[in-house]
Computed example of a mutant assay.
Amino acid sequence: MLKRPRTDFWQVGIVPLLIEDVTACALQAARERITWLPGAGRWRYLADPFGLVRGDALHVFVEAFDYRTKRANIERHEFALADLTWRGHTTVLDKPFHLSYPQVFEHEGETWMVPESFQAGEIALYRAADDSLDHWERECALIGGVPGADASLIEYQGRWWMFYTLVGPGARDQRELHIAHSPMLAGPWEPLAGNPVRVSREGARPAGRPFIGRDGVLTLPVQDSSTGYGGATRLLRFPMLSPERVDIDAGAERLTGDLVSASHTAGLHTLSGCGAFTLIDVKRIDRSRGRQWLDMKRRVRRLLGG
């Protein structure tokens, strides 16, 4: 008998909690006040949330993955800032390759996005073409010729810093943390000579926007995949970060899906601050046989050129 396939489904939530205040206890205490994004539909899920506050709205950008095509595009979900009423969603970036992890931020009067596009062999910068946040134009490649994933950027102490991982054999992307730096957002970006600066399945792949903690230390959410992909999130602190030296304090606390959800307890792999909110995603695992038929139909369509 064929083994039942494993299918991961993610759900995105808005936690009314400052990212600087996130702990396991704080997440659990906020559990009943989380606003969850609407369901994505059959064989789809939403994950990798990043946000922007504009006027009276919270804009949540997510990876929208479809198992029928095995790739994702980027959606924008809009919420009323006052009560988090959902106003609708729009697909804002769609390419012939997989897109995810849409880190969005503002800099020098423009709105930028650095989505994961490792299948295109680059880490690229996109710019919002208008104030609607629905149209984006590729500005440039920040780092080309590499299968970079989950690039997370921050301006810190007069320089731009990028934390990322590389997709490769042996689940390399789940255990390596790389860093690059630049005097300007558009580059030139220079990877550190000591990359990877951390190798550990317990916390290396970036899992959200870097931030400055209350103690002034740069902090990076990272995935803990020691129990499976995206099983939990940890916070890495960088007491020293310079082109010549990187000191890392790996926090022991694991942030898991069961802290915030009764149905999606198998993982929590994004933790992204946005104003007074922290955006998260949590995972459930499905083992129905419907996935086998779905994969078979996709292979047939490919063979037939459809």
Rank of each mutant, 00 (worst) to 15 (best):
A204K: 03
I19K: 04
V114N: 13
P169N: 06
A207M: 05
A124L: 08
A232W: 04
T265R: 09
K95R: 13
L235A: 04
Y126P: 01
R254W: 00
R299C: 04
Q292S: 06
G290K: 13
D130W: 10
A204L: 09
G158I: 07
S242R: 08
I143E: 12
S182H: 03
A64N: 10
R245H: 13
E32Y: 00
A151L: 15
A124K: 10
D286P: 01
L58M: 02
G275R: 12
G290I: 07
H89Y: 05
A82D: 14
T90M: 04
F97Q: 14
L218F: 11
L133G: 12
D21F: 00
E78D: 15
Q11C: 04
F211S: 01
A29P: 00
I34F: 04
T165Y: 06
P196N: 05
A80Q: 13
I143C: 12
R289K: 06
R301P: 00
S263F: 06
G194R: 11
R159P: 05
Y164S: 11
H98S: 15
W43K: 04
D21K: 07
G275M: 13
R284T: 09
R237K: 09
S117D: 08
T85W: 07
Q157L: 00
S226D: 01
L125W: 07
W43C: 11
W36N: 08
R68L: 15
D94W: 01
K95E: 15
L218V: 12
Y67D: 14
G275H: 15
G39L: 03
A276M: 10
F238W: 08
P96E: 08
L192T: 04
